[in-house]
Design a protein around this nucleic acid. Sequence first.
DNA 1: ATGGTGGCGCGGCCA
Length: 256
Amino acid sequence: MVSIATWNVNSIRARLAHLSTWLGEAAPDVVAIQETKVQDADFPKDELAALGYHVLFSGQKSYNGVALLSKRPATLVATDIPGFDDPQRRVLAARVDDCLVVDLYVPNGSEVGSEKYAYKLSWLDALTAWVATLMASEPRIVLLGDFNIAPDDRDVHDPEAWRGKILCSEAERERLRALTALGLVDVFRSFEQAPQSFSWWDYRGGGFRRNEGLRIDLILASAALGIGCAGCAIDLAPRRWEKPSDHAPVIAHWTA
DNA sequence: ATGGTGGCGCGGCCA
């Protein structure tokens, strides 16, 4: 694996042309997709296979849904957090060569204190317990996706306005720290980055035009993988295209 | 507290 990307496409059917164009330009070896918003029977697998990718997916009607595209064959490992009963399709783990790739669409949480927020925190606790067991036997593991958490104030356009709010609350950040404390590195922060680097901007109020965003799309690598990582960048180009996703893709690369 | 925009699927939910 030379490069791996994550992109919340906000409907794979609405974004298929964007995805195809971007895959042709960026040519990532592995792509974790979130918010496919389609049940498996309607997933555009033939279109993506025609672009040279093996395709795994776990979807549902209208909401959520994840997929993994890979130039090399992938074998499915899990589409659920073991023991966490959840009809929402947010997890896809697969082995690609000697790496375990875990595509995640973390719950948004809606509003601090809400029922959805409690679900988000319990989901994150279950995830961390599972990843702890995985890391005991998987030296080369990467967790990537839409984490719906801005790790710290550098990842927020207006930290004071967002303080304690959903995507930024201390309980969410504490959960993310507990996860990374298992031995994962946020590879984006392993390299010098421009200030005000974000991966998501609300459609409303011209958020992207004003760069009023958050960095909530993350690539977390185990030490054995993180050591060799040669760079990580947010590709802003697709966010400027007509009818874009509200997220930009994030891509990390390794030297061959 | 609300509303601003977008996707799904055709009213209202979710982000």
